[in-house]
Design a protein around this nucleic acid. Structure first.
Lengths: 237, 237
DNA sequence: AGTTAAGGTCAATGATGTTGGCATAAGGCG
DNA sequence: CGCCTTATGCCAACATCATTGACCTTAACT
């Protein structure tokens, strides 16, 4: 087997698959993204991806150095999509809100890749552009540098952290996710009210709320606190 | 094969393994935690865990309904360690602050396991105890049920999300982590001030702040927002 | 002491990622 | 236009994974 993967731009011969499709790195990544979105991350395997492409699983190793390389390629694609189309209005709080939801949403659209990339600092152009925009919003709003940096840090890490957490939930097997969601009805809703008065009193609200992401609420709370600090005219935390 | 797992407290016969060890749920979980810490989360498999315990892999199915159940038990153990020794003072904001830092810290002590379990709902006793305590603090402080549940959700998910994010950073190889940290000095600190004025103006602050966890700041902001909502006497977000 | 079934073991199943060897056709070159 | 090289797709095999059903041993209760 070839030790080295041929880089995409050096690829000259394009031989069609037995079933007729002509492979390319781009086609493979896009097919993988579609599979992950449609069948959950557990649905992505070399064999199934090969089947979807009409190619033998081992053929993928001509394009990526294993499933890990493939997942990294998917992550790169994700970052590119996250910021496309976002424009700042000048209203700092609204801007930061929409940007946060946008990044969070882009990651959640592809949970598997989100899990792998959320806790890395890439230092790539688009990530830098996002950081500059966030810091610009905060400093433009009137925050002192130290406060802007502190809030920026909490803001971006909160966004990525929730993306990773929620992606983790989505990335579970179908069975495991159902088990988690049912837990709120099967277990929590049936706890004795004398031993667990607070859970018992709120069981219905919990079952309704917990299966959804808490990120929008947490984001609003963070932004509200920031706005209050700004109004108070000084550092707080 | 037995369809049902015998709950730990109903276990009467304790038959030693061929190699002589006497199994228990606790022993299995602790062994698994040790394996994860020593060999990374990828090093945990039914076969290897069985070997480490001196038992057949299939024996684990007498104690857990699959690897999924084992994962939940590990998460439960982590929460239990966080909760051990924590006592409520009655000051809701201080209590929630110390509890959050405690849970976050307990997960970070086992980064690989944190990654594995942070996004799972275990529904086991000690997790339930934590949830009851948090809800109790909020309702006791005077929040209406709907507000208490909303804030509880944001609070616990933010805690686990940051735990997973920070654990992800810790779980990186030494080299990868250093690369990430140096990024703030090598890349961000050298960006041209005309194209990236906001990053350039705060480069020093960023390099100093970014390598540390933003969780304490985010936690304080969340609690501050909650307190303000309480003072305002009504729902906000 | 006798009986029962809990709990450990064996063997088998059908997934998974990954690799070495082989065959075939793409495309450069004469 | 036709030959040759070799890139690239395919096949079969391997090691590992979780999980299950049948078995058997022995602990604990009567």
């Amino acid at each position: 087997m070839a030790k080295e993967v041929v880089p995409e731009e050096a690829r000259r011969r394009r031989r069609p698959t037995r079933q007729g499709t002509v492979l390319s790195e781009r086609l493979i990544v896009e097919t993988a993204l579609r599979m992950v979105r449609e069948h959950g991350s557990a649905g992505l395997s070399a064999r199934r991806l090969g089947a979807a492409l009409g190619a033998d699983p081992s053929t993928l190793y001509r394009y990526f150095d294993g499933m890990d390389g493939l997942t990294r390629a998917i992550g790169e694609e994700l970052i590119g999509r996250a910021l496309a189309g976002w424009v700042a209005t000048g209203e700092w709080r609204a801007d930061l809100r929409s940007l946060g939801l946008r990044i969070h949403g882009a990651y959640l659209a592809h949970p598997q890749a989100a899990l792998l990339t959320a806790s890395r600092v890439t230092g790539r152009p688009r990530e830098i552009a996002a950081d500059e925009a966030i810091l610009g919003s905060l400093r433009g709003a009137g925050f002192a540098d130290a406060d802007a940096v502190r809030i920026y840090h909490a803001y971006i890490d909160q966004c990525l952290a929730f993306a990773a957490l929620d992606a983790g939930a989505l990335a579970l097997t179908e069975k495991a996710r159902e088990a988690d969601e049912e837990m709120w009805e099967s277990t929590y809703a049936r706890l004795p009210a004398d031993a667990y008065p607070n859970i018992a009193a709120t069981a219905g609200l919990l079952a309704e709320r917990m299966p959804h992401s808490a990120y929008p609420v947490a984001l609003d709370m963070l932004l509200e606190s920031a706005e209050r600090q700004l109004a108070a005219g000084g550092a707080v935390g």
